Amino acid sequence: MDFDGFASRLSEFAARAPAPTAVARVGLGAMVFAAGVHKLLDPLAWSAYVTDWLAPFLVVSPVAFMLVNGVLEVGFGAAIVADRYTSVASAVAAVSLTVTCLYLAVVFVVEGGLFGDVLARDVGLAGLAWAVLVDSLRGRNYR
C-alpha cells in the first residue's frame, strides 16, 4: 500500500473514532484504576517508591499508605472511566500526579537519578490528567 492510501485509511478511521477527549478520559481512568488494583494486590512493590527520608513523614507504614491509595485510586479511576464526577476525580488525579512528579524530581536530584524512568512517565500522565480535568470543567461534568 502506498503512503497516500495508508493516510486515507487513517483519515477514515479517525472520522469514525471516538472523540479524542473521551479516549483521553478513558485512558486516564483505566490507568488510575489499574494502578489502584495493583497497589491492592502488591503494595510492597509500590512501597519501594517511598524513600527512607520520606517514610517518617507518613502517618502509616509505606505498605498501609499504598493500600489506602489503592482503594482511593480504584474509586477515582472507575469514576473517570464511567464519566461520573469526572471533574473531582480528574482533579484528584491531576494534583496527585503533579505532587508525585515533584517528589520524584526531588528524589531524582537527591538520590542520583533514582526513579528517573518513573518521573519521565508520570510527567506525561500528569499532563493527561490536567487535560481531562480542563475538558471536564469546560463541559461542567460534576455529576
Rank of each mutant, 00 (worst) to 15 (best):
M1S: 14
D2T: 15
F3T: 14
D4C: 08
G5L: 13
G5E: 12
F6T: 11
F6C: 04
F6A: 09
F6W: 12
S11T: 08
E12C: 06
F13L: 15
F13P: 07
A14G: 13
A15E: 15
R16V: 13
R16L: 15
A17V: 06
P20S: 12
P20N: 09
V26G: 06
G27R: 10
L28K: 07
A30Y: 02
A30V: 11
V32C: 03
A34G: 13
K39S: 00
L41E: 01
L41H: 02
Y49V: 06
W53E: 01
W53H: 03
L54V: 11
A55K: 13
L58F: 00
V59G: 03
V63C: 07
A64D: 09
M66P: 03
L67T: 03
V68G: 04
N69Y: 06
V71Q: 05
E73D: 06
E73R: 01
V74H: 05
F76Q: 08
A82G: 12
A82L: 15
D83Q: 15
R84T: 15
T86N: 03
S87E: 11
S87H: 04
A89E: 05
S90D: 04
V92E: 01
A94V: 07
L97A: 08
L97H: 07
V99R: 03
V99D: 08
T100Q: 12
C101P: 10
L102Y: 07
V106Q: 06
V110P: 01
G116K: 01
V118I: 14
V118N: 02
A120T: 00
R121I: 11
R121Y: 10
D122H: 14
D122E: 15
G124P: 04
L128T: 07
A129P: 10
A129T: 03
V132E: 04
L133E: 04
V134A: 12
S136H: 11
S136G: 09
R138T: 04
R140N: 01
N141R: 15
N141L: 12
N141S: 09
R143D: 14
R143T: 11
